[in-house]
Amino acid sequence: MLFSVMQLLGGMILSLGWIPQIARILKTKSVADLSLKSYLLMLLGIALMEAYAVNLTLTGAGLAFLITNTLSLCVVSAVIVLILRYAGWNKR
């Protein structure tokens, strides 16, 4: 139980750590210094871990991992959408 709580708290902190980056992108409307390739690789890694988390949850373990990994997947996806949006915006 303790390790599940630690996983949940740690995962939430890691996932919510992307919020300042998203806020900065929205404020400045600039993604010039961000690497789309890096974020796509992170998304791929998180997606693979998501499949593992689903498998763990289906076997009766890993719910905290699934929750925090899903949150990370959503947040990194949001950054990618913003990179695509504002990279195109800057080219016009």
Rank of each mutant, 00 (worst) to 15 (best):
I83A: 05
V54E: 00
Q7Y: 10
E50N: 08
G10A: 00
L16P: 09
I25M: 08
R85T: 12
S35I: 12
G60E: 01
T68P: 13
V5P: 01
I22W: 07
S77W: 04
I67D: 10
S30L: 14
R92C: 13
L41F: 05
A78H: 10
I13D: 14
K27Q: 06
R92L: 10
L84R: 12
I22G: 06
V79K: 02
L40R: 15
Y86E: 08
P20D: 13
A47H: 04
F65E: 02
R85C: 05
S15F: 08
P20V: 14
R92G: 11
R24V: 14
R24Q: 12
E50F: 10
I46K: 02
I80P: 03
Q7L: 15
N55D: 04
I22Q: 03
L2I: 10
L41P: 08
A78Q: 13
G17Q: 11
I80M: 12
L73F: 05
I83S: 04
L44D: 03
E50I: 06
L43Q: 05
L36A: 09
S77R: 03
I19K: 15
S35N: 13
A32P: 05
K29P: 05
M49I: 07
F65S: 02
N69R: 02
L41H: 12
I25V: 15
T28M: 11
V54R: 02
I67S: 09
R24P: 10
M6C: 08
M42G: 10
D33Q: 05
R92T: 13
K29F: 14
G11Q: 08
V5C: 06
G60V: 08
G10D: 06
G60M: 01
Q7K: 13
A78M: 14
A64G: 01
I67G: 03
W18Y: 14
G17E: 07
T28R: 09
Q21G: 09
L44Q: 04
I80A: 13
L63A: 11
G17R: 09
G60L: 05
L41K: 09
M6P: 07
V76L: 04
D33S: 02
L66K: 11
A61W: 01
A53L: 01
T68F: 03
K29M: 14
S4P: 10
A47L: 08
A51S: 06
K27L: 11
A64M: 07
W18T: 15
D33F: 01
T28Y: 14
V81R: 10
M49R: 12
L48P: 00
L9I: 09
K29L: 15
G17I: 08
G17M: 11
L41V: 01
L34V: 08
L44W: 02
L44G: 10
